[in-house]
Design a protein around this nucleic acid. Sequence first.
DNA 1: CTGTTTTTGATTTACGTACCTCAGAAATTC
DNA 2: GAATTTCTGAGGTACGTAAATCAAAAACAG
Lengths: 341, 341
Amino acid sequence: MKPTVHDIARHAGVSLATVDRVLNGRAGVRGITRQKVEEAISSLGYVRDLAAANLAKGRTYRFSFVLPANDNSFMIRLKHEVEAAIGRSATERTRMDIIEVPAFDAGALVAALEAVMADKPDGVALVAIDEPRVRACVERLADAGIGIVTLVSDLGASGRHHYAGIDNIAAGRTAGNLMGRFLSKVDGRVGVLAGSMMVRDHRERLEGFLSVLSEDFPQVAILPLMEARDDAGVAEAMVREALRRHAGLNGIYSLGAGNRGLLRALRDLAAETRPVVIAHELTASTREALVDGTIDAVLNQDAGHEVRSAIRVLKAKADGLPVLAAQERIRIDIFLKDNLP
Amino acid sequence: MKPTVHDIARHAGVSLATVDRVLNGRAGVRGITRQKVEEAISSLGYVRDLAAANLAKGRTYRFSFVLPANDNSFMIRLKHEVEAAIGRSATERTRMDIIEVPAFDAGALVAALEAVMADKPDGVALVAIDEPRVRACVERLADAGIGIVTLVSDLGASGRHHYAGIDNIAAGRTAGNLMGRFLSKVDGRVGVLAGSMMVRDHRERLEGFLSVLSEDFPQVAILPLMEARDDAGVAEAMVREALRRHAGLNGIYSLGAGNRGLLRALRDLAAETRPVVIAHELTASTREALVDGTIDAVLNQDAGHEVRSAIRVLKAKADGLPVLAAQERIRIDIFLKDNLP
DNA sequence: CTGTTTTTGATTTACGTACCTCAGAAATTC
DNA sequence: GAATTTCTGAGGTACGTAAATCAAAAACAG
């Protein structure tokens, strides 16, 4: 039978109240007595029953998700996943809310975080903007004892406790490796379609992609970067223009959103002249393109996993428990048409 | 505030005892009264507090893991992961044990399952052998109300509730797709190194691999299958022999264990004459080979995820809760040297 | 040694549910 | 209408922990 507080009290020769004082770090216990209790705890291998403790405390975990009000399909799915988690939270003693802030607006994000801090939740998950003011604000939240998890997009050195997202440099490198190997022709000419170099994930993906190509596939030429601001219309126009201008274009890496535009531009081409295409995020349209061969590979981060991981980590933080690094690592999914879920 | 049994009692105009009788399916409640209570439950949106219920019941979940006493690194890791989970189970009210049975021995597996059934655990996870006697035995366990999860290797139509493992046909197809694309030469000649065609996973991987190659890459020739019984020594000899006999051998798919032998045979070759190599399971040796370029891609199933998923599913089954399919899907990890964890 | 402060013990209530007993009400049978 | 059976209510105890009160004991200061 698992030892309880009663067993410890008996074993240490003290009262239940004293054990409670030690366990919950309350004052009024002499060093010697505290030591006796701690000895009993470790010798009996006592571990506090969290369920019972939470029941007694009437504790409910309170978490806030601060998400960008962005309408690309990935962000929409992310929000759905948080909502699904909220729907499931009836069973767990958890209260979560979503706070939407204008996208790419550091000031708005900081304001939202300040507001969140005011009602002192146990934890906050946010899609970060890597900016000094945001870092400082996150630091303050962490100092206030609030658990902080960055979601999808990380912050540089800051007080955040955990990052629930993929390693974007590794993702870019992986795309580069696949691109280099898929391009059977020696005179590869590759175009890169990005959202914006203002965003850390996109910068990192590009960095990884270019470094692998230059290291391992020096014969591949990189065309000027296309920044389409994650907008399908802009992306379509840019890709059409690139196809027109560069006759030998045989590879495209789309590292941001707006893939619908890219696909519209590609569908007009004859199958045998289509470039090798590697894109990010498995959505209805990229999935379809993967199946029909317009896209060759999709790199994906699983929004559901990211949300669930963030919640697990925040809960662990709130309980002062360690997190299982291996479990919480968000993997870069590589989807070919043969391993679609 | 979340409604409790007291709220239901008040709302339905009955006593606590009656609510309890309805909730726990005890006899002695008239249909009309039962209906009133159920109406109150649904109108108030009551959900039983599992933590409190388990506390009251003094419930501990009891699960058994039946694993093959196999010494390949994947099975060793699987066992480690179960042990790690057991180590963590102090916090949760869970008691798990590991039962090792001789590998590839259906009779021994059935005997072990019978023994397990005798002490009526809440759930059993097993690395299945796809055999009629095993299926029948699993059926009996399920009928006895025991949750059944197959781990790594599935059973055909049977009473098992869940399979915590990868889709091996998809894995083989993925390997085939990568192989076809990585072989830049038109006259591909590919060798397949397997453990044994007696094992379902291996059969399925081969099936998937061959079907993709014949569909999408008909120019690739497949050499006679090498069955090395997951033994490194045998694998080494077979690969050496194949390399000697087939001059144009430029691709190897290793779909089982025993990769150390394969690697020994490959290291002797000059870098530029080395075949494209795709293997399964990320281990110390395949990882090293990936980094130094001997292996081009590794398909992997995460043993830790499989074990944790099995436990989550068994717990959900024991509680009569639904499982989150998306969360429990075990993914086929594709590792290139650029996205190693 | 007295008075004060600090530490400790004993006991109680609470969290939300399970499960038990016993008495009394209601429905059913004869 | 009485006897029986079937429901229902009221109340309690338990699970393991938290948190509080109040009294008693111990340590300390002067």
